[in-house]
Design a protein around this nucleic acid. Structure first.
Length: 108
DNA sequence: GGATTGACGTGTC
DNA sequence: AGACACGCCAATC
């Protein structure tokens, strides 16, 4: 099984319901890696290389800040996608972040 | 196989 | 409240 950490991250990210977001740390914990939050973000770098589409725009850091926004082709795409799903983004930050926050551990 | 890196997190100043 | 520093862990070079 070449299911490395990245693949596990991709799976969880794909499970994120529309109109909801989660944090890197939350995903890392759901995978049992705990403090490997950085790995989650690192995995997202390969998200664009993933065969299946990974809604990386639904993943933000613990502060609800769109940290990976600059990694998108057009950085503004992230906000566009989020707002298109009903998520309010202001100044690269998610409004009502706590409200739209989706915890993978609750589903898994 | 050691060193570096990285879309983070939490604590401290 | 904003800025800075250190720590984690796994993949890549």
């Amino acid at each position: 099984m070449e299911q490395s950490f990245y693949d596990q991250v991709f799976e969880v990210v794909r499970l994120i319901p529309k109109g909801r977001v989660t944090s890197y740390g939350a995903i890392a914990r759901s995978l049992g890696s705990g403090g490997s939050a950085r790995m989650v973000g690192y995995a997202m770098s390969n998200a664009g290389l993933a065969l299946d589409p990974v809604p990386a725009h639904r993943v933000v850091n613990s502060t609800g800040l769109l940290t990976g926004k600059f990694h998108f082709s057009p950085p503004e795409l992230m906000e566009e996608l989020l707002q298109a799903e009903g998520i309010v983004v202001s100044d690269n930050k998610i409004k009502n972040f706590k409200s739209v926050f989706w915890d993978p551990m609750l589903e898994l």
